[in-house]
Simulated assay, not measured.
Amino acid sequence: MPPLIPEPPFPLPQHFLYSKLMCWVALDRGLALAKELSATDRVPAWTAARQEIREAIEENGWSEKVGAYTQAFGSDVLDASVLMMPIMGFVRADAPRMRSTIDTIRDRLTDPEGFVYRYQVADDGLPGREGCFPLCTFWLAKALALAGDVAAARDLFDHAVACANDVGLLAEKIGTGSGEMLGNFPQALSHIGLVNAAWAISEAESAAD
């Protein structure tokens, strides 16, 4: 007898790079807080696990074909979430692989206005095509600032901020080609991305003076 509730058309399970990265971040921050957490006995195991995750990401999360870190291990799909790698301190933004990733996302994962899609060709089990995301756009602006490309970071940041409404609020998405605010409104994540990018760009500009 077939199931009463059919299974949704979810894609096959994958080892998503962002999930691995966040596991690395949890271990890295746990190590930094080990003494305060009275967990110094766990430092050797956490250190080994953190290094294991790093090696897995570097070995399986990089695509020579694409010239970028990608959405999942063994995948050639670009995903803006990999911009969190330098933001979370996994790798320097100006490291060769990361700089190549930043440039590839900027060239291939943006709309004509330069706003950033989360991804475009992945089968996520959802119908339709999504717009660009202010959060992802601010990730790119911050990554550019961290890489030392401060002018490009400032230009992209100012362009994204200009989409805000008359009281400075942003939605979840930006309509491709229209600049129209779409989705949940206001969206806290968009504003968190704005604040973090603004801080990084300000720090980079101050350092360059």
Rank of each mutant, 00 (worst) to 15 (best):
C163F: 14
C163L: 15
C163Y: 14
A164D: 12
A164P: 12
A164G: 15
A164M: 14
A164Y: 11
N165F: 12
N165A: 12
N165D: 15
D166C: 14
D166M: 14
D166Y: 13
D166I: 14
D166E: 15
D166G: 13
V167T: 14
V167P: 07
V167E: 15
V167H: 14
G168N: 04
G168E: 05
G168L: 03
G168Q: 02
L169W: 10
L170K: 02
L170T: 04
L170C: 10
L170Y: 02
L170W: 02
L170H: 07
A171G: 15
A171R: 04
A171T: 05
A171E: 07
A171P: 07
A171D: 09
A171F: 06
E172W: 03
E172S: 05
E172Q: 11
E172A: 12
E172F: 05
K173R: 15
K173V: 07
K173S: 14
K173N: 14
K173I: 10
I174Y: 03
I174F: 12
I174Q: 04
I174G: 07
I174E: 05
I174S: 05
G175T: 09
G175R: 12
T176H: 11
T176C: 15
T176G: 08
T176P: 12
G177D: 13
G177V: 13
G177P: 07
G177E: 09
G177Y: 07
G177K: 08
S178E: 11
S178Y: 09
S178L: 11
G179E: 06
G179K: 03
G179F: 04
G179P: 04
G179W: 01
E180G: 13
E180D: 14
M181R: 14
M181V: 06
M181F: 08
M181T: 10
M181Y: 04
M181K: 09
L182P: 03
L182M: 13
G183Y: 05
G183P: 08
G183M: 08
N184M: 09
N184F: 07
N184T: 06
N184Y: 06
N184I: 05
N184D: 08
N184E: 05
F185C: 04
F185A: 09
F185G: 06
F185H: 08
F185P: 04
P186I: 07
P186S: 08
P186V: 07
P186W: 04
P186A: 07
P186Q: 04
P186K: 04
P186G: 07
P186N: 10
Q187G: 01
Q187N: 06
Q187S: 02
Q187V: 00
A188P: 03
A188T: 08
A188Y: 01
A188C: 09
A188W: 01
A188K: 00
A188E: 02
L189R: 01
L189G: 03
L189V: 09
L189H: 01
L189N: 02
S190N: 09
S190C: 08
S190T: 06
H191R: 01
H191P: 02
H191L: 00
H191T: 00
H191K: 00
H191F: 00
H191A: 00
I192E: 00
I192L: 12
I192C: 03
I192Q: 00
I192M: 05
I192G: 02
I192P: 00
G193L: 01
G193Y: 00
G193R: 00
G193P: 03
G193V: 01
G193Q: 02
